[in-house]
Design a protein around this nucleic acid. Structure first.
Length: 410
DNA sequence: TCTGGGGTCCTAGGACCC
DNA sequence: TCTGGGGTCCTAGGACCC
């Protein structure tokens, strides 16, 4: 999709059309640009740029907050259109998808014709512009759709992959970022064509396994890593995380701990939504100077229960926080998803079951009344914290830290 | 240029096992 | 008691993507 977030915002507020628009937050907030309109890009504004910088470059731009729910909704609409063109659709991100069009020729005609029909249908049904790249590999399809932007279609005829890629900067290859680009420049490699001329052994000696994959990519092959899989292959999540950057760095213990608890609740909730049980939980801690550490803990049996996550995360925090140091960001990630139900000892089974019911009820309340409707006591500031400390296992004992597994239903 | 939030994949070292 | 080789799992960090 072209300038996806900006385009969606324009649907909700047509007066934004044609103007310099920056999605991501207020100009003096901590944060970066999620998306910039083509008009704003003329002033050098681009995504991932700090909002403050964008403001300096383009003070007259309209700064708007992002609306993830809107983008998700539009993304689902987009998916609905795509699915009619092929059963093999893979959403690679919220605004990007791959379609395997093999065998659809009788239905949709030759490639350019199918693409044209799709392009029209997308505009008609979502009122959003997209660009389409057509090729015999995911890599070339992706690069050609980038080259087709905005609002274009580009077909790279089989056999022409290397010729199409050769004049492009190496940076255009997905997976080549700032660091790899610099590395390649230091070897005198600037264009994809330079890369394609080198032999694999040389690249492998300089860049390891990645160099080998790169040699393939320079020739238009889906070599290595995330490009290899079949389109539409299973996309089970590998991790679930939430993080928060404070508006201002803080060393207030109450604030830090309540933030961690809240993050654990959000992670736990997503685990339950997806029916996942995590074996590993990870704390992320970023200080004022941007120095960042991560510390992980693995459970004996996988969990999706907030209190089990948060008691471990708080322990990791307690053990690793340079006491008193100001913190910029906290994050919590769950991973290593194990299949089965937790194998708890029999005695704990009942308590555990009650907690699961309580958490499910809390999720329903949040659905109905909003994210802040229900919280574990430790997620609140102040009074309740002591009681949670008395109950470090975080399990619902007589304290009923969350006040949840009681008689009342919801 | 004072640097978000949600992800994936890769590397490397150490513990541990046979 | 100068010490191999293969494997897995765990942890930490980093590049990269949208």
């Amino acid at each position: 999709m072209d300038a996806f977030f900006v385009s969606v915002e324009e649907l909700f507020d047509p007066s934004l059309k044609g103007k310099a628009v920056v999605v991501g937050g207020r100009p003096h907030e901590r944060g970066v640009v999620s998306a910039a309109s083509y008009e704003a890009r003329k002033f050098g504004v681009h995504s991932a740029m700090p909002l403050r910088t964008a403001y300096k470059l383009c003070p007259h731009a309209i700064f708007v907050d992002g609306h993830p729910a809107r983008y998700r909704e539009c993304s689902e609409q987009v998916f609905g259109v795509l699915r009619r063109f092929s059963p093999l659709v893979e959403m690679a991100s919220i605004d990007e998808a791959y379609l395997d069009m093999t065998g659809t020729e009788r239905l949709h005609g030759p490639p350019l014709r199918a693409a044209h029909t799709l392009h029209e249908a997308m505009k008609a049904e979502t009122r959003l512009n997209c660009s389409i790249g057509i090729a015999a590999s995911r890599l070339v399809a992706k690069v050609s759709s980038d080259q087709a932007k905005p609002n274009g279609i580009l077909w790279v005829i089989p056999g022409q992959e290397a010729a199409f890629l050769a004049p492009l900067d190496v940076r255009k290859i997905p997976g080549v970022g700032k660091v790899t680009e610099k590395h390649l420049h230091s070897l005198g490699i600037r264009k994809v064509g330079d890369l394609a001329r080198l032999d694999e052994a040389f690249l492998e000696s300089r860049l390891g396994k990645w160099g080998l994959a790169l040699a393939g990519k320079a020739r238009g092959l889906d070599a290595g890593g995330w490009f290899d899989a079949e389109i539409g292959a299973d996309t089970e999540p590998k991790s679930v995380s939430h993080e928060h950057t404070f508006g201002e760095d803080t060393n207030d213990l109450d604030r830090l701990e309540s933030t961690l608890t809240r993050l654990c609740e959000m992670v736990g909730r997503r685990l339950r939504e997806h029916g996942l049980h995590a074996r590993t939980v990870q704390l992320k801690l970023r200080y004022s100077d941007f120095a960042t550490i991560t510390r992980a803990h693995s459970f004996e049996s996988p969990t999706q229960v907030d209190t089990e996550l948060s008691s471990q995360v708080r322990e990791l925090f307690r053990r690793n926080w340079k006491s008193g140091a100001r913190v910029r960001l906290l994050g919590v990630q769950a991973s290593s998803f194990g299949a089965g139900e937790d194998q708890l000892p029999l005695l704990a089974e009942d308590r555990h079951e009650r907690w699961k019911q309580a958490l499910a009820a809390a999720d329903r309340l949040r659905d109905r009344y909003g994210e802040s409707a229900v919280s574990l006591a430790a997620g609140l500031k102040g009074n309740f914290r002591e009681r949670v400390h008395e109950n470090p296992a975080g399990l619902p004992g007589k304290h009923k830290a969350a006040g949840l597994p009681g008689k009342h239903k919801e």
